[in-house]
Design a protein around this nucleic acid. Structure first.
Length: 282
DNA sequence: ACCACAACCTGGCCGC
DNA sequence: TGCGGCCAGGTTGTGG
């Protein structure tokens, strides 16, 4: 489900529920998610105290008092709830962490594309991630350097976690619309100024989405079960056939890297070699 | 290096 | 009511 704004929203909501709590019991109901859950069962989490909750890209990092971390990736349909133990288990809830105040941290994931595991200080999956889009090291110069010689469409470049982490299909579409860059433009063809606009568009889009509690398309829920409201502000995502909020043209659609791609043919000019380079100002 | 594609898994929706 | 086909926010691995 989640991209950066959704995970950030969950993180913020979890902090008051988890910080300082003792994990009294771990219950595992499924043999595996994306990875087997047996190592989690054997990790000796019971009796550990949670010292904090962080986020890196789309990963939640729940810090334990022995220096290890619980790493949680929500996949496409992961939902975390904090509820009392009396509430019956739902069909796709796979792991319960019982806390010393009677609350239960429950992990649900319909499609089981998610990850829940214990890691040390770091892990290979975290080390492979590029910069955070809301941090300073994500900037026009970095993207310019990183994109030289790359023919890959800028949308896929933007969704590459090694380039920048946390931007998935929804926010790649919205970001490119916002900075008026066509998703098919070759990453290596963009100029430094294009990347400057792209960086600002990504930051603004992500910040607004976090403010709205993320985008609930179908499955995503906040920790208290409520929905994120940013989908109502999507300009192009899942708006094929509707009118562009800026120029009124009909939102177009194409498939890129197997993913649904939405754009405004009026605002986001088609990549054409040498053609209309003069028309649109910036 | 790049890119298309399949796979992981379940459920919702649409058309027939 | 049922069935087949298509779609879905992510990640990883394959083969060309």
């Amino acid at each position: 489900m989640p991209e950066l704004p959704e995970v950030e929203t969950v993180k913020t909501a979890l902090i008051p529920h988890l910080s300082g709590r003792l994990v009294t019991r771990v219950e595992i109901f499924s043999p595996r998610l994306r990875e087997p859950l047996a190592p989690l069962a054997a990790a000796g989490i019971e009796g550990r105290r949670i010292t904090g909750v962080g986020r890196r890209g789309r990963y939640l990092i729940i810090r334990l008092d022995d220096g290890r971390n619980l790493l949680v990736h929500l996949g496409m349909t992961g939902v975390i709830r904090i509820e009392r133990a009396e509430i019956p288990r739902r069909k796709h809830e796979h792991v319960f962490f019982h806390l010393d105040n009677g609350d239960v941290f429950r992990f649900e994931c319909t499609r089981r594309f998610s990850v829940v595991k214990v890691i040390g200080e770091s892990s290979p999956e975290l080390d492979a991630l590029g910069p955070e889009p809301l941090e300073e090291d994500f900037n026009a110069g970095y993207l310019f350097k990183r994109s030289r010689g790359r023919k890959t469409p800028v949308k896929l470049f933007l969704m590459d976690n090694a380039v920048v982490t946390g931007i998935g299909n929804i926010y790649a579409n919205e970001t490119l619309f916002r900075c008026r860059i066509h998703p098919l433009r070759a990453a290596g063809s963009l100029k430094r100024g294009d990347f400057a606009r792209l960086v600002e568009a990504a930051r603004a889009t992500l910040r607004e989405a976090i403010e709205a509690g993320g985008s609930t398309i179908r499955d995503f829920r906040l920790v208290d079960g409520s929905e994120g409201h940013f989908a109502q502000q999507h300009s192009v995502y899942q708006r094929r056939g509707q009118h562009c909020p800026v120029c009124g043209q009909t939102i177009g659609h194409l498939t890129l890297g197997g993913r649904s791609t939405f754009f405004c043919p009026g605002c986001q000019t088609e990549p054409r070699k040498g053609k209309k380079a003069a028309a649109p100002g910036q």
